[in-house]
């Protein structure tokens, strides 16, 4: 999906309906990767309108990389851009788009299996949050409550505002009785902080399901395919190696734990 399409899907209509309540939040999203060279920091927008929401990066350029000066060659591969960060590090830049339909309890987003784009569908409430009592804090003038939850290998602290909206949140975070304004993993690997809130925007953003015509797979199938792809790569590596040589692949620098472990021959 290219950027243009996303913009079309989020067309800005100046129609003021009876329930013109809608909410836009711009987040700064930081990934402090274990391999520092893969670290990124960029802005994402969340549009909450009625029972639907869209969360997407509004800057898919190479500026998101913390170590921009290290970027070497860049290559366009279909909708993706492959950038060389060092002799041993490559990254794919893509347009992220997370669509949520609360009526249907559906979350759909795109993921890469190495360089191939796939579409993944899940339920919205993925995290069993525990609301911490007496942890009120003010974020961007909004009274927020704190909740803690485990999600795919990391523990997250989230601050949500029940008064700003009934639900919603950035990325896959959701399932709290209020919109999630700020969330970070306790190891600081993944940090999402709000930088702007637009309440009751006059330009109402209508959220469409851009994945309507796409066939999505479940998270478990995605993990399985990801693992199969790695095993294929490992076999290729083995075929190229000399007798007695050993090799292994391990996924260590992802926000979510795919539960694949170390694959070796």
């Amino acid at each position: 999906m290219n950027k243009l399409k996303v913009i079309l899907m989020l067309s800005f209509f100046s129609i003021v309906t009876l329930n013109a309540q809608n909410l836009g939040i711009t987040y700064k999203v930081t990934v402090n990767a274990n391999d520092a060279i893969l670290s990124t920091s960029t802005n994402y927008d969340l549009i909450l309108n009625g029972n639907k929401s869209a969360y997407y990066n509004n800057n898919d350029s190479l500026k998101q990389f913390k170590y921009q000066s290290f970027i070497g060659e860049r290559k366009k591969i279909g909708e993706l851009t492959r950038v060389k960060l060092s002799d041993n590090h490559y990254a794919y830049v893509k347009q992220d788009f997370y669509y949520k339909d609360y009526e249907k309890d559906t979350l759909i987003y795109n993921e890469l299996i190495v360089s191939k784009k796939t579409f993944v569908g899940e339920k919205i409430n993925l995290i069993d949050w525990e609301i911490k009592p007496k942890t009120d804090t003010i974020i961007l003038n909004q009274r927020c409550l704190k909740a803690i939850g485990e999600f795919r290998g990391r523990t997250y602290e989230a601050y949500f505002s029940p008064s700003l909206s009934q639900r919603g949140g950035p990325w896959k975070f959701d399932g709290l009785p209020g919109v999630i304004l700020s969330v970070k993993s306790q190891d600081d690997y993944f940090i999402i902080e709000p930088i702007k809130i637009v309440k009751n925007s006059k330009s109402q953003n209508i959220v469409f399901n851009v994945y309507n015509d796409k066939k999505s797979i479940s998270w478990n199938v995605f993990k399985k395919r990801f693992k199969e792809k790695l095993i294929r790569q490992l076999k290729k590596l083995k075929s190229l190696s000399e007798d007695g040589e050993k090799g292994s692949i391990e996924v260590t620098d992802r926000i979510e734990d795919l539960g694949i472990g170390k694959l070796s021959f």
Partner: peptide, 23 residues
């Protein structure tokens, strides 16, 4: 009951952060 309040647009921006880290 339907909430028919027409609310004005409100924009809240984060204060400039006390620090930022780059490279």
């Amino acid at each position: 009951k339907t909430d028919i309040n027409h609310l004005d647009e409100v924009i809240i921006k984060a204060k400039k952060k006390s620090f930022s880290i780059k490279k």
